[in-house]
Amino acid sequence: MSLKKLLKPFKLISIAHKSGVVTVLYPYQKPLITTEFRGKISIDATKCMGCGACVNACPPNALTLSRRDDTIVLNYFIGRCIFCGRCAEVCPVGAITVTHEFELASASTRDLNESLVHRVEKCSGCGGGLGATSRMLQYVILRSPASENYVHLCPNCRKKKLIQSLAMKMGARTEDYEG
């Protein structure tokens, strides 16, 4: 019994021999990532409509939306990304996909930023900024066709149009209204 006990530590030799070398020659050999791995996201510029659903869901604020008068800019900063893939889940048009890419180190932070610039539509009434992209308008019209009549107008012009049509219903003549 005592001899068996004494020899026990040597069992490791057989374990080690059986398991062999388990480390991989990274990066010369392919890294061992599974099919489910979540890496950086890629935003499809042909699908994205700049609605900002992903920005609301992003836990670390890696996705940000900045609105200017004539543009909406969606910025993706990989440095903050936690690779959770929530954005891909909430995107209403499926523009975001999670890739397997993870070798993202770079000497410059510029490489870690990706921006997508959307042009903002103009109001068909007054020509001012509408705050929405043409894809957003199409998206709304597709889901609620009745909105086609007023979706191209800014809130102010919409108000005007509503008052106009109300007044017409009450019997006002167009000249009266314009006068």
Partner: peptide, 29 residues
């Protein structure tokens, strides 16, 4: 240290399994 290395060799399979189940080795999200 031999025990350390073999314990971590076994653990590695669990990490790969975790990645398969959740999408990430740690911070499963």
């Amino acid at each position: 240290d031999a025990g350390f290395m073999h314990s971590w060799r076994i653990r590695e399979k669990v990490m790969v399994l975790a990645e398969l189940l959740t999408g990430s080795r740690k911070t499963y999200g």
